[in-house]
C-alpha cells in the first residue's frame, strides 16, 4: 500500500524533518507510528497524503508514484485515503451532518445514499444526536470524532490518523480504536500516529518509531 525508499524531507526553512526513511506498509496492515514530539510523525503522514512533497527518495502510495503525480490526479488519490489531521479541520459554517457528508458530496453520491451513510457513521462515533449542531458548539473531543467520521465515511482503503484519540477520554479512545480495528478487519490499511504508548501497547500492532526524523525501529510485536 505504501512504499518509501530513502525518503528525506527538508522544510522550506531548511529543517530536516525526515532523514533517509525506508519502509514498506502492506495492504491491510495496522500500523502505529510513535516517537517524541517533533520527531516527524505528522510530517510522515502528510507525505503519505501528498500534502507535503518529499525532498528526495521514492514514494508510492496506493499505486500512485507521489514524485510524479500530477495535481489533477491528487484528488483521486485523496479519495482513497481517509485523513485525520492533528487539529480537526472542520468547516465552521456547516453543520456536523454537512461536514461528515462532504467527501460523499464531492465524490458525487446521491442525496439518499449520502444521508443514510452520514447518519450511520455519526452513530458509530456516538454523535447521532448532534448532526444539526455546528462544530463550534461542540467540545474538542466531539470535533475530533467528526473529523474521524468524515475520514471513514467514504470507506477509504487507507486511513491516516494523526493523534485521533488525543482529545478523547480513555473510554472513548478505546471505542474509537475498536472502530478502527473493525475497519482494519474489513481490509482497510490503517496508520495511526500517537505518542500514547499505553494505547499503542494495548492494541499491539506493528510499530514504526521515529526519532529526530530517523526511523529507528520497525518491529512486529504480535
Amino acid at each position: 500500500m505504501i512504499e518509501l525508499h530513502r525518503v528525506s524531507k527538508h522544510y522550506p526553512n531548511g529543517y530536516l524533518a525526515l532523514d533517509d526513511v525506508t519502509v514498506c506498509i502492506k495492504t491491510g496492515e495496522f500500523i502505529f507510528l510513535t516517537g517524541h514530539s517533533g520527531a516527524g510523525k505528522s510530517t510522515l503522514l502528510k507525505i503519505f497524503a501528498a500534502i507535503e512533497p518529499v525532498s528526495s527518495g521514492d514514494i508510492i502510495v496506493a499505486k500512485h508514484n507521489l514524485r510524479k503525480i500530477t495535481s489533477r490526479r491528487v484528488p483521486y488519490l485523496r479519495r482513497q485515503i481517509g485523513i485525520i489531521l492533528q487539529t480537526p479541520n472542520l468547516l465552521m459554517d456547516k453543520s456536523v451532518f454537512d461536514n461528515v457528508a462532504l467527501p460523499l458530496v464531492i465524490a458525487g453520491y446521491s442525496y439518499k445514499e449520502i444521508s443514510s451513510r452520514a447518519r450511520a457513521v455519526l452513530a458509530k462515533v456516538s454523535l447521532g444526536k448532534k448532526e444539526n449542531c455546528y462544530p463550534y458548539e461542540l467540545s474538542g473531543g466531539e470535533q475530533q470524532r467528526i473529523a474521524i467520521a468524515r475520514a471513514i465515511i467514504n470507506k477509504p482503503s487507507l486511513l491516516l490518523a494523526d493523534e485521533p484519540t488525543g482529545n478523547l477520554d480513555p473510554e472513548l479512545a478505546n471505542e474509537i480504536m475498536c472502530l478502527f480495528e473493525q475497519f482494519n478487519q474489513l481490509g482497510m490499511t490503517i496508520v495511526i500516529a500517537s505518542h500514547d504508548l499505553d494505547l499503542v501497547n494495548r492494541f499491539g500492532h506493528r510499530q514504526l518509531i521515529l526519532e529526530k526524523g530517523k526511523l529507528i525501529e520497525a518491529s512486529v510485536t504480535a
Binding site: 484528488p75 485523496r78 479519495r79 485523513i83 479541520n89 472542520l90 468524515r150 467514504n154
Partner: peptide, 16 residues
C-alpha cells in the same frame, strides 16, 4: 482559504 484546503484534503477536484 481554510475551507478550500479542507475540500482539497478530502479529494475535492479543482473543478469542484
Amino acid at each position: 482559504q481554510k475551507e478550500i484546503d479542507i475540500i482539497k484534503l478530502i479529494g475535492g477536484t479543482r473543478a469542484f
